[in-house]
């Protein structure tokens, strides 16, 4: 892996996005709109908005980056650019790293807007630092990118790729503790939720919500999300075939 090839790849991915302003607008605006929507759905019970809102700030980047990166890598595979790049002196890590950096940067921007609106316009009450919220959001975005890159190896078409979103993301969404605390779930489901990375993303957000400083539990949860993201990124790199079967 070389840093300059990774950065060149990240710059290229961002340059591609720049030619697609509608996608940028959707990426940046939709999460904020959803947070605003949520605020007024729970107009009568601000406590519910408070707990769900914080979690959603972490879940949005995960979902959007999952979708964007699975389609982007699928396009790279089907257009032949992947074959060309891998026939060049480019390490698989350069490609994966480039995507992670580019989508990570978009996610930071997306989260800045969504978090800013939630905290200062919608009066979301967070005890901890907004920077910790942002950190978790960034880790979640990396996790989403990693999962998206990985599943795109199993998709032969865009139709299949978008179906992986309900298949991979929805179960995690139901089990992550967003709708009901995880320890009130049926024990088997709780065990399953213990091994799903989104659970730790939500737990980390909950820690920031309730504690003024980064707790040990926060560090553990954030660490798990980061570790899973890196592991899945490595798995994703392994699915890039240098050779045609």
């Amino acid at each position: 892996m070389t840093v300059s090839r990774t950065l060149a790849t990240a710059a290229r991915v961002l340059r591609q996005l720049r030619h697609d302003p509608r996608t940028i607008a959707l990426l940046l605006i939709v999460p904020s709109l959803m947070i605003i929507l949520l605020r007024y759905v729970f107009d009568g019970s601000p406590a519910v908005f408070n707990s769900i809102g914080a979690s959603l700030l972490g879940i949005f980047p995960l979902i959007t980056m999952f979708l964007v990166s699975s389609i982007a890598t699928l396009r790279e595979r089907t257009s032949g650019t992947l074959e060309r790049l891998l026939a060049m002196p480019l390490a698989k890590g350069d490609l994966i790293g480039g995507y992670a950096i580019a989508f990570g940067a978009i996610a930071v921007l997306q989260s800045l807007i969504a978090t800013g609106i939630a905290l200062w316009l919608l009066d979301l009450n967070v005890t901890g630092s907004p920077w910790l919220l942002l950190l978790v959001a960034l880790l979640d975005a990396l996790l989403g990118t990693a999962l998206g890159l990985f599943v795109s190896a199993f998709a032969a078409s865009e139709f299949q790729a978008v179906q992986f979103m309900p298949a991979v993301i929805f179960p995690q969404l139901l089990l992550c503790g967003l709708f009901t605390p995880r320890d009130t779930m049926q024990p088997v489901l709780r065990r399953i939720s213990d091994v799903l990375p989104m659970s730790y993303a939500v737990d980390a957000m909950t820690q920031v919500l309730h504690h003024p400083h980064a707790t040990a539990a926060f560090a553990r949860d954030a660490g798990i999300v980061a570790a899973v993201a890196i592991l899945v990124l490595a798995l994703g790199a392994a699915t890039l075939p240098r050779r045609t079967p």
């Binding site: 300059s4 710059a11 591609q16 257009s79 790049l85 060049m88």
Partner: peptide, 26 residues
């Protein structure tokens, strides 16, 4: 390759700039 393997959402020069950066990075 047989199919034109370039990025359709980049300009011609941006495509070449990127591949050139892969060949001679830095």
């Amino acid at each position: 390759t047989q199919a034109p393997s370039i990025y359709q959402d980049l300009t011609v020069r941006q495509n070449l700039d990127y591949f050139a950066a892969v060949l001679h990075p830095g």
